[in-house]
């Protein structure tokens, strides 16, 4: 296992190693500063809270990192997250047995992934435009469903078992967190050990050469979109169950957090290189920074400014490391 798991690809291997080290340093720094500023930071309640937010970014990120390495993009994940949560609440409220509603809402996520993939692969629409389109469709649908339900959120009249998935505890840890982390582990295995990794790096590195080498370029990209959609559906359902309501506003900025985490982790927005562990570290940094600012009662708008700066900074850092 030794060198095999250090996700190296050619010359970029060394660059990524340095970047991962820098990320670990930043993470430690962020945690130290957070602890010093607010003692509440390390409390159990707060940690579970941060981990919940971070886990959702990581979950979608687990598949999205491969998608980005393959040279594609998904902006719709935030609104798909919101829509699947709203749909989970709406369906279970309107007579569909909760377990079935749970599965169906995840499949709605898959459906959006399939639509994204079909637009990009089949109709050859640029990923940014295609997923921007589906993002608005998902957002609109989420609001429509909430409006049909008669309010801004789908909150009242939910069956009692609606919250079971999000509220069950295994000792001190919520069950859903364990399941989400198990899923992330499975995707880490997919990323590190399976042919999907080979395909993604090859397609993102040189699509023409990939096609001439007989790889199913379209099939792989489509499959990755479906995986991203499915995981996002799972995340949306989980959040709704945890919060006890389906809100169309829950996914605002989520797509941005996922992209920042991936790019911060050393994945090129042009594809062809990237790191799973980097995405994990990136998500933790984004999560901890946001959480600390929340604890310090810094207004949401400042957080947005900071995240924007982090994204630009991450891209600059990548370029600096690479040019050496």
């Amino acid at each position: 296992m030794q060198a095999d798991l250090t996700l190296k690809s050619g010359r970029r291997g060394a660059t990524l190693d340095i970047q991962l080290l820098i990320l670990v340093g930043i993470l430690v720094l962020v945690m130290a500063v957070s602890t010093a500023l607010t003692p509440r930071f390390l409390s159990y309640v707060n940690m579970i809270n941060v981990l919940m937010q971070v886990a959702m970014i990581m979950l979608t990120g687990s598949a999205a990192v491969l998608l980005m390495i393959a040279g594609a993009f998904d902006l719709s994940v935030g609104m798909v997250l919101a829509l699947t949560g709203v749909m989970y609440a709406f369906m279970s409220k309107n007579g569909i047995p909760t377990p079935l509603a749970l599965v169906l809402s995840i499949l709605i996520g898959s459906g959006f992934g399939l639509a994204n993939g079909a637009l990009v692969v089949g109709l050859k629409i640029t990923p940014v435009i295609a997923t921007l389109g589906t993002m608005y469709v998902a957002q609109g649908l989420a609001f429509i469903v909430a409006w049909i339900d008669g309010g801004a959120n789908v909150t009242t009249g939910l069956p009692r078992d609606f919250e079971v998935f999000g509220r069950t505890m295994v000792g001190p840890i919520p069950l859903f967190l364990l399941i989400v982390f198990a899923l992330i582990l499975i995707f880490y295995f997919l990323f590190a050990k399976t042919n999907l990794r080979k395909y993604a790096f090859a397609i993102g590195g040189n699509q023409t050469a990939a096609r001439l080498s007989g790889l199913k370029v379209g099939g792989v990209v489509l499959a990755l979109y479906v995986l991203v959609g499915t995981l996002t559906g799972f995340a949306g359902m989980t959040l709704a169950s945890r919060m006890g309501s389906g809100s169309p506003k829950v996914g605002t900025g989520f797509e941005f957090d996922v992209i920042v985490a991936i790019v911060l982790g050393g994945t090129s927005i042009y594809g062809g290189e990237g790191s799973f562990l980097g995405m994990i570290l990136g998500a933790l940094i984004i999560g901890f920074v946001g959480n600390t600012l929340n604890l310090l009662n810094v207004m949401f708008f400042y957080q947005t400014v900071l995240k924007g700066l982090i994204l630009v900074g991450a891209v600059l850092l990548m370029r600096q490391l690479r040019s050496r």
């Binding site: 050619g10 590195g205 040189n206």
Partner: peptide, 9 residues
């Protein structure tokens, strides 16, 4: 541009 993945090993 057609035969190789130049960034890979």
């Amino acid at each position: 541009s057609e035969g190789l993945f130049t960034r890979l090993a």
